[in-house]
């Protein structure tokens, strides 16, 4: 029986920039930041109130996992905003929206009433987009 997700992955175009976005703008915590040799880096962050879920900020780079063509295709798709990477939740969407906007986060959709609560959409520094939601109380 599967019990939990421990790791998930967001593909990013630059790990330094992703670190700044997820840690300094979104307020995530660094879980592991380990050099893996030859310039490779294992970088995981956790949502502030979910320390057991590691989100890997995985660099799209040519190597054993991706060939040159795949890197080019993936980079173009991410930049284009093709991928919705996750749904985040917060206690107060309007406050979180105002704070993230003040920190320079780009929103594709402002807080909007939905049947389940409120939702806004924002993109990360690579181009991945996320839903930010607040459930009806």
């Amino acid at each position: 029986m599967i019990t939990k997700i421990t790791h998930t992955c967001i593909y990013v175009l630059n790990q330094d920039s992703a670190y700044d976005f997820y840690v300094n703008k979104l307020g995530f915590k660094v879980h592991t930041d380990a050099p893996m040799g030859e310039g490779a880096r294992w970088l995981t962050v956790t949502p502030p109130e979910q320390p057991e879920l590691e989100i890997t900020l995985f660099l799209i780079a040519e190597g054993a996992m991706f060939n040159k063509e795949t890197v080019s295709t993936m980079t173009a798709l991410i930049k284009k905003g093709t991928f919705g990477a996750a749904v985040f939740t917060c206690k107060d969407l309007l406050a979180t929206y105002e704070e993230l906007k003040a920190k320079g986060v780009v929103f594709k959709k402002p807080p909007t009433k939905e049947f389940y609560g409120m939702e806004a959409l924002f993109t990360d520094d690579s181009g991945n987009w996320f839903s930010l939601s607040q459930a009806n109380s």
Binding site: H7, T32, A34, P35, M36, A40, W42, G63, A64, M65
Partner: peptide
């Protein structure tokens, strides 16, 4: 521990797929 053996902190599937 991370500096001594970072593989202890990386799921093996990722380490293998990346050729680490």
């Amino acid at each position: 521990a991370i500096n001594r053996n970072p593989f202890l902190f990386v799921p093996n599937c990722y380490a293998e797929t990346n050729g680490w």
